[in-house]
Design a protein around this nucleic acid. Sequence first.
DNA 1: CACAAAAGTGCATTACACCGCACTTTTGTA
DNA 2: TACAAAAGTGCGGTGTAATGCACTTTTGTG
Lengths: 78, 78
Amino acid sequence: MHFNKLINTIKERRENLKVNQENLAKLSGVGLRTLKQFESGKGNPTLQTIQKIADVLGLEVCLKVKTEITNEDGKNSL
Amino acid sequence: MHFNKLINTIKERRENLKVNQENLAKLSGVGLRTLKQFESGKGNPTLQTIQKIADVLGLEVCLKVKTEITNEDGKNSL
DNA sequence: CACAAAAGTGCATTACACCGCACTTTTGTA
DNA sequence: TACAAAAGTGCGGTGTAATGCACTTTTGTG
């Protein structure tokens, strides 16, 4: 399972805010090990973990209707 | 931790599509017990579990910037 | 109300998320 | 290139998510 989109959003947001993993871990209350694992594309985090991280970054988890058309590569056309 | 917004989105979407928990469980590959637990607001599902369910319902998990203003009750003003 | 379908719960097992610690690798800047 | 900060990884303990099964409760329709 690939969470690349979510991961990149988190990672980019964190970097834009000039926060390193260590500080984000402390601010969010998520273990540094867990955060590292998530950002490096390994784990399968729980919703709670994602929420904690997103919250500190001023993001929120949401569900939107999939309306996008994907091409044969499975990548978005947009 | 309250995932009410996510839960309601899933539940409403499922009901609009006239699918019961049992079929959604089968279609998504998520255990019925897990789905029930999630929809009844108990558990703390993993991202993979949410993705599987959302996928079947034509939804996708995303992160958006929190721009909403909250009042002193911590509830959205909107 | 009566009954059936759907939703919710208790229990037990298995797998794995979370986490700290110590270490290696990568990145970026002088 | 040399060095420090940041990012990534192996190990191992603890807690809990995922799951099936059997049961109870709720919902909705005649």
